[in-house]
């Protein structure tokens, strides 16, 4: 794994982008997009996080192993959200078979 030296110029650019995105996320928070509110905020946050991971943390220039680890970490977090979310999102539903059974008895 050879070390890749990132030049300061690209750090400044990333920093500028992060600051702009921070300002943007504050501004859009005062507008109501309805259901999209959180999606907009999270898209900006994910973009910022991706910039930090790829460039400040050099993942863009890192080995495949490092990239795999980063993806795996977020993938497992996604597993937790999806599986726990699947419970909470379907809490209200009761299968027809069960309601029929309850009515009959």
């Amino acid at each position: 794994m050879s070390e890749h030296i990132v030049q300061p110029k690209s750090y400044y650019k990333i920093f500028g982008a992060l600051m702009v995105l921070t300002a943007l996320t504050v501004v859009v928070a005062f507008f109501d997009f309805g259901a999209l509110n959180d999606i907009v905020a999270m898209t900006i946050a994910v973009t910022k996080a991706t910039l930090v991971i790829l460039f400040f943390m050099h993942v863009f220039y890192s080995s495949r192993l490092t990239k795999t680890i980063v993806v795996a970490g977020f993938f497992w977090l996604a597993i937790m959200f999806v599986m726990i979310g699947s419970d909470y999102l379907s809490r209200g539903y009761v299968p027809r078979g069960i309601t029929n059974y309850v009515e009959r008895h």
Partner: peptide, 18 residues
């Protein structure tokens, strides 16, 4: 092994579909 933990919770308030 990470996808099956809900089988400890069949008798809780966990949703039927989950």
């Amino acid at each position: 092994g990470f996808l099956v933990w809900g089988h400890h919770m069949f008798t809780t308030g966990q949703s039927v579909y989950a």
